[in-house]
Amino acid sequence: MVGKVNPQLVFVHGIGGLRNAEAEQREWLRALATGARAAKQAELISALTQGWLADVRFADYSDLLTTKGAQGATLGSELDEFEEQVLSGLLEAMVDELAQQFPPETSTGDARVIEQARHHLDALSSGNSAQGVGGFARQIVWVTTTLLQLPGLRQTAQWANGQAFASHLSQVARYLNRKGDKASLGSAIRSRVLEGLDPTRPLVVVSHSLGTVVAYEALHEYEGQVALWVTLGSPLALGGVVLQRLVPRPPSCPEKVGAWHNFWDRNDVVVGRPRLAKWIAPSSKGVKAQTAPVKSGGVWTHTATKYLEHAKVAGPIVEALLP
């Protein structure tokens, strides 16, 4: 008698420092179990957390982005012009999203912080930024340090200071850089995500933040069938920053994906909101992103575990893992 073959479940993380893959896998699974309970699938929690339901892997590529000389802790003068454009564009998009939550006309403390951050960005784009070696980095750190004055970001985000915040955001720019030998970083990251996968077995991919960009390109390379791809807090639809720089182009759902669920929080300043479903074309089989909002507490809602704790997020993932 042939034994049961478990499906594969792969978690793909986003920006940040060095990871403890084993510990983070447990955290993501606990959050998914919380969501499964909320989705009234409590009977599957033990099977999920104990590894009976699926073979789970946390695809950790953090060391590729945080090695010495790769801006693991600080933002120096290593960014090239392309990476500077992407990083400043990403911050502009974040400030725009924050301004929608705290409009200038409200004259609140939060609104004033956001306008101050915009002032620093405007100075950068107008050429009035700090001059000399590292001038761009200093100006960007002024922006991120200003944003960390927002109580929600200061209390719940993962950064101790503006340097770390800017450095981690720059990982998006570095991943997207296709120039010369810098393209090897993105290739190595995608290989890390795909390594060990068996194309003959069912696969469910849960990706977050920068991980959704990595997964988009990796799944275009993957030869096996993907039963479900879930994107959380995705910047894929940030038009001038990410969308136009994806490979392959024009952007479309990876051909091997059977279903794609995208979730965004209205308070998540990193996401492209519902535009993702409109701006990324369906696959030749008609599969496209099915987008749904969730609502978490606090200003900083851009964490994978906050998303996974929602019933509407966890429910489809657990169902896709069932025999």
Rank of each mutant, 00 (worst) to 15 (best):
A93K: 03
H120L: 14
S126M: 07
A130G: 06
W52E: 15
V141S: 07
A111G: 05
D63V: 07
E115S: 11
N128Y: 06
V86W: 05
R112N: 13
V56P: 02
R174Y: 08
R178Y: 10
D110L: 08
A70H: 07
K40D: 13
L48D: 03
V95M: 09
P151R: 08
H119A: 10
V95G: 06
P104I: 07
D122W: 13
G127S: 09
R57I: 08
G135I: 00
E43W: 11
V143I: 01
W52K: 14
L65H: 01
A70V: 10
G109N: 07
L48S: 03
D63W: 03
T49G: 10
L64E: 04
H119D: 15
V143L: 01
A42W: 06
P103W: 05
R174C: 11
F102I: 11
D181K: 11
G135Q: 03
V143E: 03
R57V: 15
D63G: 01
S107R: 15
S129E: 15
R138A: 12
G135E: 06
S167W: 00
W142M: 09
Q116D: 03
G109T: 07
L121V: 02
F165I: 01
L79K: 00
W52D: 13
A160Q: 01
T108Q: 02
R154E: 13
I45N: 04
L64C: 06
Q116A: 15
L169T: 12
L91M: 06
N161M: 01
E115G: 15
G109R: 04
D55H: 10
S170T: 00
Q116W: 05
D122L: 15
S167P: 00
K179H: 12
W159P: 01
G152Y: 15
H120N: 04
A59H: 00
D63M: 08
P104F: 13
R138T: 05
S126N: 06
E105P: 08
W142S: 03
Q100W: 12
L75V: 04
L79E: 00
S167I: 00
L90D: 03
A54M: 00
E78N: 10
R118V: 00
A70C: 13
T49P: 12
